[in-house]
Design a protein around this nucleic acid. Structure first.
Lengths: 337, 337
DNA sequence: CCCTGATAGCTAATCGTTTCGCTGAAGTCT
DNA sequence: AGACTTCAGCGAAACGATTAGCTATCAGGG
């Protein structure tokens, strides 16, 4: 690879001038500029980011660490994030913590070593696993999940509202025995969605039966076994609120394997759904997150932090989910009620 | 951030010794080593990759440029690749060319500037768009699609076999009027799959009718409109081979919107399917690619190239697809034949 | 005609590592 | 005892860019 010295020698100028031309950082006479540009082209010169970054102490890298790359929800975040990062002139370094706090710890250290200018983190594990100043020294935006008391900007969705909307819909259809398959309780997302469900039922003087709320990992298999267990019993719920899209697939499979039909025998509402499932039957009724908007906003905040050295107050942005009606619910038939 | 000099000063040794301890690159007496290790811990020293890479001319970065991040197929590649890259001690820089040759060109230049040690590329566009030595100077593995005459290692699947297996299955069920919804013809993948279909039919003295082979972008919407058009005509095929998972979703939606049922009215076989769709009805009959194996193999080849400076001959590895039978096909009813 | 001010472009220091080559103390052999 | 090895650890030169500060040129005013 040609270096800036080769270009300088060929153009008969100093390296400083080449640098000035590259970065448009000082006036260079048209004649010299032309010679430099020619030399750059002839030598196919591309500046070394390693050297530039060493000098500028910038890396042009933004890290994204998601909780589970196998989940289409995060795959969509990655998709949006790549586009946004590129649009801001950075490149995206991708990490998958796989819901494991230990892996996440290694990733954070790696991000530091790489000298990433900033990171978007979907945190794994409970809030108390983080030091109070865990993210000092590197611009950070937390996405989707929040950590109390950590001075990082946060972009989340209103999970409580998602749970409330979903269960309100089921209640409006006449369902009363409503169950839920939800994620791990130490995650703010799972907790929020369940709280929303409880809110909605409480508003009508109801509460979920203890055995009708089951939690497990945010994975299809976990949801399958939990749902199969819950729906096998005689006083099974007539409707289920499922806390995430991948789990909804597992729940539907469990129901089918038990010989039950959706929506005739069981109504299902989920929060989030997997991409592509829209083409198959029955279409899920679900609350949807504005993933692209959330991700873009997270990156806007991050780039803002990176480029403004000023320490503005911590910002926290909450997006609202929307209920999308599909075909996975029916009104409760009163003759059974 | 503490630098190596700070550590050296604090431990009362030279920077060379600190470096030796960090990299285990020379013998250091236990006593000095202990002092250095303590100093590192106390100062929370993390070496600057920018400086290290400048010196070593390595970046520890592997780039992955995929053709379409919105496609779950590539999302799964990203998932596998992140894990493999991390396992080899590198970090993953992710790019999405969005099937646009211009974007791909910018990405390649960016990868050079970043000084990535290697890249895995899902190339976009026809072979003639690349210079003969386009990839010189950076270790490259082409994944999924190949480019003739470019000296890069390649990992692909046998697309022709995929098409052949899929259509053979339909022929075995008695179907004769078989259509296909396939991708852009300039891509080796689309062409290979269609060739396989033609092979299979030719082996029984058949050939697809001209109007029954339609191509479009590898996207759900394109497949939807193409399928809707094809299936609207009276001599519509009794079975369709769809060249990719996302398109299969579009085709199924088109069929449903036309009031047809799958599999009763139309049988569908696809190559690849979207993750999660396995939980919904009807389960697709499809050929599957060993994505994780392919990706791991691509990274093994790449790391091999990066770390062995030797210029071994170009390697090309072809994986075999497997037919997975779902519920989206039925035997042709003879009374209509 | 000299002095001043403006400024295009150069020289050299710098960023934080790695690594070559050197020093000097200790050990080994005759 | 003297000469020769060995080798732990050090000093300083890279790596390839940016950039502060300097030099030299030129125009214009007195």
């Amino acid at each position: 690879m040609a270096t800036i010295k080769d270009v300088a020698r060929r153009a008969g100028v100093s390296t400083a001038t080449v640098s000035a031309v590259m970065n448009d950082t000082a006036f260079v006479s048209p004649e010299l500029r032309a010679r430099v540009v020619t030399a750059i082209r002839e030598l196919r010169y591309e500046p070394s980011l390693a050297a530039r970054n060493l000098r500028r102490s910038r890396s042009q890298l933004i890290a994204l660490a998601v909780a589970d790359l196998s989940n289409p929800f995060y795959a969509r975040i990655v998709w949006s994030a790549e586009a946004a990062v590129a649009a801001w002139g950075y490149s995206l370094v991708l990490f998958n913590s796989d819901e494991k706090p230990d892996t996440e710890r290694r990733i954070l250290s790696r991000i530091r070593t790489l000298g990433c200018d900033g990171m978007v983190l979907v945190p794994v594990g409970a809030a108390n696993q983080y030091q109070p100043h865990e993210f000092d020294g590197i611009a950070t935006v937390l996405l989707g999940r929040s950590i109390e008391g950590n001075g990082a900007d946060t972009v989340t969705i209103d999970n409580r509202s998602a749970g409330r909307q979903a269960v309100d819909y089921l209640l409006d259809l006449g369902h009363r025995r409503i169950g839920s398959v939800t994620g791990p309780m130490q995650l703010s997302t799972s907790k929020g969605r369940l709280d929303g469900m409880i809110d909605a039922m409480a508003a009508r003087g109801l509460a979920p039966q203890p055995g009708h709320v089951r939690s497990g990992e945010f994975r299809e298999e976990a949801a399958y076994s939990v749902a199969r267990d819950m729906m096998g019993s005689p006083d099974r719920p007539t409707a289920i609120y499922v806390a995430n899209g991948v789990m909804a697939i597992g729940v539907m499979r469990a129901i089918a394997d038990l010989g039950l039909r959706c929506p005739q025998d069981v109504s299902i509402v989920s929060t989030d759904t997997v991409a592509g499932a829209g083409g198959l039957k029955p279409r899920l009724t679900r609350t949807e997150h504005p993933i692209a908007d959330m991700t873009n906003e997270a990156l806007r905040l991050l780039v803002d932090r990176i480029e403004e050295r000023g320490s503005e107050p911590v910002r926290s942005i909450v997006f609202q989910p929307a209920l999308i009606v599909g075909e996975s619910c029916t009104p409760l038939r009163r003759d059974f009620g």
